[in-house]
Amino acid sequence: MQTQPKTNDAPVMEIRGLTQNFGGLKAVSDFSVKLGKNELSGLIGPNGAGKTTVFNLVSGFYQPSEGEILIGGVPTAGLKPHKVTSLGVGRTFQNIRLWNDMTVLDNICVAQHSQLNYGFFHSAIRSKHYLQREKEITEKAAELLNVFDLMKYADDFPKNLPYGTQRKLEIARALSSHPKLLLLDEPAAGLNSADAHDLIRLIRWIHETFDVTIWMIEHHMDVMMQLCTQIKVIDFGETIAEGSAEHVRNHPAVMTAYLGDENI
């Protein structure tokens, strides 16, 4: 296994020959991708194709059976998810996983855990350093909420917010540690068409405003077509097509995977 030097030209994320077996099932097989700075790219595929597995592998939730993942040139093999996150990966979940009994502001604060720079003893004695850091963290969180127009909900609990707002909050939380790579797992799932439209604008705005590479999984083809420059299609863990949105849409293998074989 070769380790690439950590330089600025290293791609934000690079996956080489990623394979994941669950018992006898090959969930992902020989998957490779390279994401550059500020890219907005997509991953699609039918249900059970292994998309979320790829995301779980990238965020360190699973350890790959084969292949390697590099974040900014640093291999993530053997790292716990929180370490991977502190390398600069933020993500959202298919089914919203906010901390529902914590205020919106706290949700954003706690997600900055990797940057706290103080430990238990500082919090127990309330040192100057601690108070300073707490102030900075809260300010940073408030700033992010303001930017996302969520400040009015700062003291509410996420469970009491409308579904679309929860999605937005989850994306804000993923951005709170200033990641270089943002993974969005079906951000439009469960949204009506008006909300989905807002979401497209939101993602485009994030892409323009924050210095971040976005990689998203989505089922809504129209969302993907409007947003992504590069799309990869996987089915049964195998990459079946990749390229621009237009190219992917008309690719025969993609049509077969989504609509079924015409010979049946």
């Binding site: 939730f61 996983r97 906010l98 901390w99 706690v110 855990h113 939380r173």
Partner: peptide
């Protein structure tokens, strides 16, 4: 904020670990 990680674990441990 450090100690609120405790509540984060109780509410969703997977999310806590992945959110650093």
């Amino acid at each position: 904020t450090f100690g609120k990680g405790v509540s984060a674990i109780s509410q969703d441990e997977v999310a806590a670990e992945i959110m650093s």
